[in-house]
């Protein structure tokens, strides 16, 4: 066994997953250690297994081959409350459809810290309001959650994850509904927490410019297999991107950062756009 320190973090060991009905495995032999205190990008084309991998972390898939260890313990062995004090999750979109206010929704994140009968304490309300302030939705706190726009909802979900005060946050395309200002705002908030408070973030994203700007590590999936992993600079190379995404990229250095320009799709007949 390794020492206690090495055990902390999220470690994926030889993880494979093939549902009974599927012809091909969704994940095969994934091995990767998500180190603490980093913002790691989880990359890959649609259907490459990114969301499925995150669902394993949350034990939403119960019968994998291999394992996901959180701080040295298999995620399947965690009690739900115990796990949710380690990992918060921001889903791609939320299915919440009831008449709770934004503040009530954010306060739900305090559930794992309470016993059955406890109400929301002053401390809980302070944490929830801090989180809403951070993502800029404090003025919406008495609004009905279902009445929010797509972007406001997404920010409310991020506030909820922050209010869960976990060392890890998983975000599944957290910026897909946000305008550019809020995309940068949210990612900056997360990065600041990573740098100043040692938060660990795993984020699914499709925008390489954002990955380049905010993430320091990356893991790239293709057809359920790890195509590349390591520092962002090592993963985001034109050769790898071409082989995984079938799109060529021009990369330009500007102000010390690389900027990614997509070129034409490698096999033109695969898209409808070229038919026009």
């Amino acid at each position: 066994m390794t020492s206690g320190n090495k055990n902390s973090g999220i470690e994926v060991r030889d993880l494979s997953y093939q549902p009974g009905s599927a012809k091909h495995p969704i994940l095969s032999d994934i091995t990767y250690s998500f180190a603490e205190g980093h913002m790691t990008a989880l990359l890959g084309p649609n259907g490459s297994g990114k969301t499925t991998l995150l669902r394993h972390f949350l034990s939403q898939i119960k019968c994998p081959e291999g394992a996901v260890l959180i701080d040295g313990k298999d995620t399947l062995d965690y009690a739900p409350k115990e796990r949710s004090r380690k990992i918060a999750w921001v889903p791609q979109s939320s299915s919440g459809e009831s008449a709770f206010t934004v503040e009530e929704v954010v306060l739900m994140a305090r559930y794992p810290f309470k016993n059955t009968w406890e109400g929301d304490s002053e401390e809980d309300i302070r944490i929830a309001r801090d989180a809403m302030q951070t993502v800029g939705i404090l003025d919406l706190k008495n609004r009905n959650f279902t009445s929010l726009s797509g972007g406001e909802r997404q920010r409310a979900l991020i506030a909820r994850a922050l209010a869960q005060t976990t060392p890890w946050i998983l975000l599944d395309e957290p910026t897909s509904n946000l305008d550019i200002k809020h995309q940068i705002g949210i990612l900056e908030v997360l990065k600041k927490r990573v740098q100043e408070e040692g938060l660990s973030v795993i984020v699914v994203m499709h925008d390489f410019n954002m990955v380049e700007r905010f993430c320091d590590r990356a893991i790239l999936l293709k057809n359920g297999e790890v195509a590349a992993k390591g520092l962002v600079r090592e993963v985001l190379t034109p050769e790898l991107l071409l082989s995984v995404y079938e799109v060529g990229f021009d990369i330009i250095e500007k102000e010390g950062r690389r900027v990614f320009f997509p070129k034409n799709v490698a096999e033109p007949d695969m898209t409808e756009a070229t038919e026009k």
Binding site: L58, Q60, A79, P80, S84, P91, G96, A109
Partner: peptide, 22 residues
């Protein structure tokens, strides 16, 4: 015993579980 758990379940099983509901 279930009041709060039922509140969280309104967000679906997966989100509820991610917030700690059995």
């Amino acid at each position: 015993f279930l009041g709060r758990d039922l509140d969280l379940l309104s967000f679906g099983d997966q989100e509820a579980q991610s917030m700690g509901v059995s």
